[in-house]
Design a protein around this nucleic acid. Structure first.
Lengths: 361, 361
DNA sequence: AGCGTCATCTTTATCGTTATAGCCAAGGTG
DNA sequence: CACCTTGGCTATAACGATAAAGATGACGCT
């Protein structure tokens, strides 16, 4: 006990004794109180857990997820707690038990599919938990934007410019790795609420403009990357072989674009990465952006602003989302009662990738 | 004990009893074995600790650090251990005790200044530790590149093009937040070994070309960002007021460049961010890159390749560094004896930001 | 019957802390 | 002088798990 006091409450013992303790500790090679034992006794782990939908090694390639991490870490640093990135999210070795075994005081679940075992594992721990973006769970604190309204605004921007032929590129509708055109039935069954809400927002705007959503092609990608967006756009815009770009090798042969009257004049993407891939595909097909094709993204990550042309997109503050989530979690740990659902503001940022549709020929 | 077996070794008891245990657990609201207690008893925390030099909220803005995190996480995921981002690195509340209190089995220390309390705190834990980039510590496993040789190659590329007037932009020489021209004395006292080695490499190349290193201006920035690089370049290239860019406000008034015969024709930067800032400053000063000014960076982060012009820089594989560090640490935890120092390959990537110096007027 | 084997479950002791309460001497009060 | 404080130190008992060893009974074999 005296040793414990020497380390934790130096004022409780005389300087002399403390010095003796420290000296002896050094001589014996005692490395200081064991964090595990201390945690057990004190009942706190000193860390917040972060559960992502995909393995971290993918997640760090997503600028939005990294910004979110930055926000969380800012608050965690200030509260002097660690941030544990929980393993077990890789598809080939999905391991909900890892969530149960994580040494944490509370959990932040970031953008996981509805019904995923990771979510139930997190909730079963009976510790404070905050869910970010998706899925909603009864009584569980939540942080996110109004995806449906935001998507609707993005699409209305284009219907307002009098676009009539639309196509959409979406990241995963459900966590089964599907890739390709998504039928209306599949759209209906979507297990990622965010994808679902964004598509619903697109549908709202198109419906309000008198256009048919079920007949609007939606290309589903199993993730969010420029390469996947490029591939999707080729499928939606071109008539050439639909091989993935990697198979095309170094000397890419662009496929021919669809004839004008069949080709969409506007592409709605559920993320900036996908949108940037679409812009790239358009360029390779010889289509001008926004002259021949308008593209809107979602998230407003840094590359969206830096792109050529800069991307019209829905801005959301990912860092703020991270800060909020962390604060809600820390508040719950302190036993404070706070608002359970926080919506973060979004806004459409109109830049250079959208314009009126080309004049009919 | 039977409960423990029910959770950890289902084969050790009959299905019936196990079912009864699980059912009772549910009824009583028992959330499964407590990770802290399990960790204490088993002697493992199930996580690796990651200690950065700066608070995470800054670190996530550094593409190189994020890529490194990606590499580490890849290996950690595969080994089914978590990754704890240790707090306590913010300058205003630097807290080496947080390193001692982290619930981890081993530590990775990423790019910390020599003599920093974080390093000694890590080593005093008497757990396997790997240091990345800096500082070197006797007998402690290390991963990094040959910074001096790499920097020398970068500078030799420019001396080979017959540049004669150089300037350098460096990130921190020592962790004291200094900003401005770094005297030869200060360069000599540098506490960040990486900065020191890269400057030494520059000096090697300049010396070999018969140029004076002590007379070559070096501008020190307290971090690595485009904005700091821009500011440094203004100081090195312009004659206007040397105020930081932020003070210039929204309507930036570019200062006039130095007259030709005094202005450097080549800038050596210790990071891509700083280099990109220098390119931007040159543009604002009306100087062509590489026509009037050549710039080399360091690290080859994604924006370097995407920049206009694309940046000549020293490539290093940050992810690979992360993977290596994590593997060395896991190896040490398993008690394997491995090589203690691993050098990662680097290579100069010549792109569009460097060329011959302008013809003398 | 006697004995070993095996599957299944239980007992004991321990991991390294720290909350709590207790002890003791020195000094202050009435 | 008895009595209370106070500062400084110590003894006890958990925190919640699990390794290791022990107990129990069913079964087969000679």
């Amino acid at each position: 006990m005296t040793v414990s006091n020497a380390y934790n409450r130096p004022d409780q013992l005389s300087a002399a004794l403390r010095e003796r303790v420290v000296e002896t500790a050094r001589r014996l090679g005692y490395p200081g109180p064991d964090p595990l034992a201390r945690g057990l006794r004190r009942g706190r782990a000193g860390a917040l857990g972060l559960v992502y939908d995909s393995p971290l090694s993918y997640t760090v390639r997503d600028a939005a997820a990294v910004a979110f991490l930055g926000g969380v870490s800012e608050v965690a640093e200030a509260a002097r707690v660690g941030l544990l990135l929980v393993p077990g999210t890789a598809p080939e070795q999905r391991d909900a038990a890892a969530v149960g075994a994580a040494v944490v005081d509370g959990l932040i679940v970031y953008s996981v599919a509805a019904g995923d075992a990771l979510v139930s594992a997190a909730l079963e721990r009976n510790r404070p938990t905050v869910i970010v973006d998706q899925p909603r769970a009864r009584g569980v604190p939540f942080v996110g934007i109004d995806d449906r309204a935001a998507a609707r605004e993005a699409a209305e921007h284009l219907t307002g410019l009098w676009h009539r032929r639309f196509a959409a590129i979406a990241f995963a509708l459900s966590p089964d790795g599907a890739r390709g055109p998504a039928s209306p039935a599949r759209r209906h069954r979507a297990r990622y609420p965010v994808t679902r809400a964004r598509l619903a927002g697109f549908a709202d705007a198109l419906g309000a403009a008198g256009l048919s959503w079920p007949q609007t092609p939606v290309y589903e990608c199993p993730g969010s990357s420029v390469e996947l967006g490029r591939e999707a756009a080729f499928a939606l815009l071109g008539e050439g072989p639909r091989r993935p770009a990697a198979a095309l090798g170094a000397a890419r042969r662009p496929t021919a674009p669809l004839r004008d009257h069949r080709r969409p004049t506007a592409v709605l993407a559920t993320s900036d990465e996908l949108a940037l891939g679409a812009v790239q595909a358009a360029r390779e097909l010889g289509l001008a952006v926004p002259g021949d094709l308008s593209v809107v993204g979602f998230d407003d990550v840094p590359p969206a602003r830096a792109a050529e042309p800069p991307l019209t997109t829905v801005h959301q503050d990912h860092e703020e989302k991270g800060r909020l989530a962390a604060e809600m979690l820390l508040g719950a740990l302190r036993g404070e009662a706070t608002r359970r659902v926080r919506r973060v503001a979004h806004r459409l940022v109109v830049r250079g990738s959208t314009g009126p549709p080309p004049a009919p020929t």
